[in-house]
Computed example of a mutant assay.
Amino acid sequence: MFQHLTALGIQQPKQIERYSLRQEAHKDVLKIYFRKQKGELFAKSVKFKYPRQVKKVKTDGGSNKYREVTEINRNLTLIIDELNTITKTKKLEKLSPKEKILSDLRHLEKVVSSKIAEIEADLEKLK
């Protein structure tokens, strides 16, 4: 039933609890979170990166000028449709714009601090 999710290697799609989708540079990052199993400290998650499709679009009808625009990968849209089918009954109440911005900011802080730690560890190896 969930052919695109099983093609990703997800054996039990019904165990999916939620997902997140964000854009980093020219990639869309899909992170799928599974239900926490008994005895696990943290719930499992998997991350997939999809390059954005680049298209050239005419900017003006009179001139021959084009500009590049990016859009979501077609395969990713099919996966999101399947994820929405699974998670539609579990939708969390919508966050206010302020709450969403704060949530995005906290996530960015975690990503940046993790990357800084990784770079510092690489620098230590060079000594």
Rank of each mutant, 00 (worst) to 15 (best):
K55L: 15
K36C: 08
Q12A: 09
E71V: 04
E68Y: 10
E118S: 13
I79A: 03
D122V: 02
K14G: 05
H4A: 10
E17F: 06
E93M: 08
I86N: 05
K90Q: 06
A43S: 15
E99T: 00
I86W: 00
F48R: 04
L105Q: 07
K55D: 15
N75H: 14
E124S: 10
Q15T: 11
T87I: 02
V69T: 12
E109S: 08
Q23S: 10
K58S: 10
M1P: 09
E120S: 13
H26Y: 14
V57G: 03
L83E: 07
E124N: 12
Q11A: 14
K31R: 15
Q23F: 10
L8R: 04
L108Q: 08
D28N: 11
S63F: 07
H4N: 15
K88M: 09
I16H: 03
D122Q: 15
P51V: 04
F42I: 02
D104C: 09
K38Q: 12
P13D: 06
E120N: 12
Y66N: 08
Q53D: 11
I80D: 01
K56T: 05
V69N: 05
A121L: 13
L126R: 04
K110Y: 08
K58C: 08
E118A: 13
T70Y: 07
F2H: 15
K88H: 10
A117F: 03
R74Y: 12
Q11E: 15
L95R: 09
E24L: 11
E17A: 13
I116W: 01
D28A: 15
S113D: 13
N73W: 02
V69F: 02
G62V: 03
L30D: 04
D28T: 05
R106L: 09
F48N: 07
N73I: 02
S103C: 03
E82Q: 11
Q11W: 00
K58H: 06
D122W: 10
D28R: 08
V57S: 04
N73C: 08
T6P: 01
G9T: 04
F2S: 06
Q12R: 08
E68P: 00
A117P: 00
P51H: 06
T87Q: 03
L123A: 07
S113V: 05
N75D: 14
F2L: 06
K127M: 08
G9L: 09
Q53E: 14
K55R: 13
E40G: 03
Q23D: 09
G61D: 12
H26M: 11
Q3Y: 07
I80L: 15
K55N: 12
I80K: 07
P97A: 09
L30W: 04
L41H: 01
L8Q: 11
G61M: 10
E40F: 10
R22C: 06
D122R: 11
L102R: 05
K127Q: 07
R22L: 14
E71W: 00
E93L: 10
H26A: 12
S114H: 12
K127H: 08
K14V: 04
T77K: 15
I101D: 05
A121Q: 14
N73Q: 13
A25Y: 04
V111R: 13
